[in-house]
Design a protein around this nucleic acid. Structure first.
Lengths: 177, 177
DNA sequence: TAAGATTGAGTCTTCAATCTTA
DNA sequence: TAAGATTGAAGACTCAATCTTA
């Protein structure tokens, strides 16, 4: 049985610096959340470039992709969108204005609730979202290609556990709250 | 031998939507990078709140923490800082200006190279950085507390492997030229 | 010529109202 | 009273240009 020894990375180096400077501080959180953040930041410009080639930024594509994966008729309310995207309602309004100006989404009055609005993907919006998403997924698959299939599955499962525990916290807080 | 079955999370739900809409697209990248991003975004406001209580934002603390963990004399050049922080040089200049105005860092001329500058933590900057870092690490440890010790180590190891492979890519690209 | 730091323009975001309807 | 969407002010970042020194 051979134990997989992974090479030391820059987060290890950082933790060692902290161990010298503040030895009593436990930096396990950084080993996970710090790496997650580093990976996210590192990968972002390359993904952003995929979208830029289609005259979109990742924020705009997030909106289009959320609509696309919701399935026909590719239509959601702003509130559903900004909650799913984890941005402010004001931020979403601005994104929608840009996307509408570009002809990629259309806003119409929601029947049933006159306060609300329906945001729908246009034909061109759907086309653009689909192409960008395909290319993005091809790139992201390549970016995790340094792991074996088994490692990828294991990593996804462990991350899933973190996602679930962070979500449960909210649920608990809401229940208590 | 009991296989650990983790609960389904919102990224699974998302992947299932995509599987319905575009069945031929492989979304494994999203299972890892999408979760890393979600976790990073999810956790951010809580960490940000820790810093806000000390009148800092996470960008500013990143600078202070980088200086602090570099050890005595807590001094680095702007170029070292912005590369380590993964931001633009212009972005760093702005952060330094704010931190200097707040009395947390001081800039002085670098001896030996008149183009450059030395950024040094002030006493108050060091105090503030240390307190915020301790509290941040306590919070982050709590946030990954939903995993067992063994799971945390395994997750950290797998993420390390991703970090290394993304870094190697750069090295390879640089070597190829 | 290139590297280090800074500046200003442009862009996107959050936050705190505001307006309308439930 | 509260919820949904929008607006505008304020803040932070990137990018490209600039200035100075290697």
């Amino acid at each position: 049985m051979s134990r997989q020894v992974t090479q030391r990375d820059r987060i290890d180096a950082r933790r060692e610096q902290w161990a010298r400077e503040l030895p009593e501080v436990d930096t396990i959180g950084m080993a996970i959340l710090g790496r997650a953040r580093w990976i996210t930041l590192k990968v972002r410009p390359r993904i952003e470039a995929v979208f830029a080639a289609r005259e979109l930024d990742s924020g705009e594509l997030d909106v289009l992709a959320t609509l696309l994966r919701s399935g026909r008729p590719y239509r959601l309310r702003p509130t559903e969108l900004y909650r799913s995207l984890m941005i402010s309602s004001g931020g979403l309004t601005a994104r929608l204005a840009r996307l509408e100006r570009a002809g990629l989404v259309a806003r119409s009055a929601a029947e049933g609730d006159a306060r609300s609005v329906l945001v729908e993907l246009t034909k061109e919006g759907r086309r653009r979202a689909e192409a960008a998403f395909r290319e993005d997924m091809a790139l992201e698959a390549e970016l995790v290609g340094g792991l074996t299939v088994a490692e990828r599955e294991q990593l996804a499962a462990l991350l899933r556990k973190v996602v679930v525990s962070l979500d449960d916290e909210d649920a608990g807080a809401a229940a208590r709250g």
